[in-house]
Design a protein around this nucleic acid. Structure first.
Lengths: 368, 368
DNA sequence: CTGAAAGCGCTTACAG
DNA sequence: CTGAAAGCGCTTACAG
């Protein structure tokens, strides 16, 4: 008795201990303090209606008094839910953190997920190791659902998680090799058309394009819409006038410099996102081109920085917060749906809740 | 028999089922397939040395064949570990995602955490609700340790998590109301001195300062170092010449405009971070000031964007990746330390692993 | 080296 | 409305 290392020498006799083996109060402690069974305590804490008012009050008071927080592992084990939803960005850390695009989508999603009583977990998938880790994490039951952003060609994680039976949604039209996952899109083709219409309206006849990563449909779709309206306006965009800038400031700079060498008489730029437009603005200034007098610049996204550049950026606004909200809502709906629902139908439920592509609009500022 | 909804009609008789109740293989299935006990299977999978080669091979093959992934909840419940480390940023989503500062720190930390066999979980703490949720999440056992970035005055989460007995580390000197948490710092005072030295060296006598949030020591320390060296050089910095810019591009713009009105003859700017310097550059250009001829600009951080501005930014480089590595290493060390270690000594173990403040260096580019 | 058994903390039919 | 009991899937002394 004297040589037993008992961390709680006061928890003796038949009285239920105030703390569990981990030194933290358990449901057992709460029940004991409230003078009810563990089952009743559990019912109160989970908001079951089948409890007497007296029991409810007692349990609530005890839980409060002990600062009781349910053990997540025990809960997960029996409910088979983690109450966590992943927000997965398939990019290098640098990109993840330097493009405000994600912040806005996240904000919309976060609110919805939290309101449904769940946690959101951010995950960066930058390489194969991260990918494997995410899939294991999901298979281990730590995730109930996932939304994917910035999905590139051949990304297999969405399909893998979907195979586990969990609701999954992809932002934007999934590129090749990703599979037919539920997705929401913004109207990228329409956005490209808006940009082209404006460039034409301000009299530009020799525009060039800074495209995003070649393996992302969002960029291709924007350029397609642009080309279409340009052509209708009698302006042909040669292939050499479109240069990839990887959706980054630095990439935008490089691409802009290249295009300036290739087409010294260019008079307009469409950047498939605002970050590249920022890079382009810098290079144009350095090369002595006035914006918008000599060269009109139109961006895409309408990130906060867009109004702080000089001149402020004319750009295509996307309802990114709404995009996040939509994705989260679809996931939550599938999660909260009839539990007996056909698991094979999860994707259908999610896709149905996603709705139509989101509309874009042109925001005219100083750059074009 | 015919009316029982048995999802696995083939799992009959005394044979162990290939899948558990959740339709996913369990340790039991693996053990059965390998012809050993659950205990042995567990030992193999956890790398215990006390297993025969034959058993090991059999279990590994079975696990592989069944694509077995251990149930995280069950594991957490018994080990009392989640194998997850939180990377907590106490900022609005916007800031979290638009300042590349975080990306770099994260990168260093991520690598270390992953190598130790753990997951990193990003958490944004933007309001009181997020804070409460984080604390519950931690109390529920979902976290083994946490590192905090961008901690403002009065932030109580680090202390709360530390009270739970988990290793915690704060980036930078904790502001008032945060408590004496283990922390690593970069030499902010030294960095401020470097900036001042350079400004003086390029002949500036009327500099102004864009400071960070008033409740963050990093900014105050940088300004202190600056003031000190400026004073030694015979240059007095009036209080009115320091204006807060919240570490953001937009804030930098506003502060710069204000200072330009207040001190039309200013000839130098020290921005306590690069994002504000970017904002300042824009306003200076709009107001017709040439950089560096009329006004020399020095930033702080050396984010990737710093080399893409025009002119490229002269700035104080901080070893941010190393900062992340240090924080993560300290946490991992405390976690992997002797399990019988005095829990009250956790903070000491962490602090001891943190080492000296990290040195900064000046990177001279075009802006000053 | 291996297995039977206990137990982590919770939820949920099942009886009453 | 309430409690006793089973069970979620794993790890880990304890014997052998």
């Amino acid at each position: 008795m004297v040589d037993r290392l008992d961390p709680h020498p006061d928890a003796e006799g038949g009285v239920a201990p105030v703390r569990g083996a981990a030194g933290v109060p358990t449901l057992e402690s709460v029940a004991a303090a409230a003078g009810v069974s563990r089952a009743t305590a559990s019912r109160v804490l989970n908001g079951s209606p089948r409890v007497s008012e007296a029991a409810r009050a007692g349990v609530l008071a005890a839980a409060e008094q002990l600062s009781y927080v349910p053990n997540g592992a025990a809960r997960m084990l029996v409910t088979r839910r983690s109450d966590a939803v992943a927000f997965v960005v398939c990019e290098q850390e640098e990109v993840f953190f330097s493009d405000p695009f994600f912040a806005t989508v996240l904000k919309g999603a976060h609110r919805v997920v939290v309101r449904s009583g769940r946690q959101v977990l951010f995950v960066v998938v930058a390489d194969e190791g991260d990918r494997r880790r995410l899939e294991r994490f999901a298979a281990g039951g730590h995730l109930d659902a996932a939304m994917f952003l910035s999905v590139h060609r051949g990304e297999h994680s969405p399909a893998r998680l979907a195979e586990l039976g969990m609701p999954v949604v992809v932002a934007g039209r999934p590129p090749a090799g990703v599979g037919a996952q539920p997705h929401v899109d913004t109207d990228n083709v329409g956005g490209g058309r808006l940009a082209a219409g404006h460039l034409l309206a301000v009299g530009r006849r020799r525009p060039v394009v800074l495209t995003g990563p070649p393996d992302m449909p969002s960029s291709a779709d924007r350029v397609r819409g642009l080309r279409e309206v340009l052509a209708a306006g009698g302006v042909h965009l040669p292939d050499a006038a479109a240069e990839p800038g990887h959706y980054s400031v630095e990439g935008g700079r490089t691409a802009m410099a290249l295009l300036l060498d290739r087409f010294p008489d260019l008079d307009g730029v469409f950047a498939a996102n605002d970050l590249m437009a920022v890079g382009a603005l810098g290079v144009l200034r350095e090369r002595g081109r006035r914006v918008p007098e000599d060269v009109a610049v139109v961006g895409y996204d309408d990130i906060p920085l867009a109004s702080a550049t000089s001149p402020p950026l004319t750009t295509v606004h996307q309802p990114l917060e709404e995009l996040g909200r939509r994705m989260a809502t679809a996931l939550v709906r599938a999660l909260d749906g009839p539990p007996g629902g056909d698991p094979a139908g999860t994707a259908e439920v999610v896709q149905a809740a996603l709705g139509e592509p989101l509309q874009t609009r042109l925001v005219v500022r100083g750059s074009a």
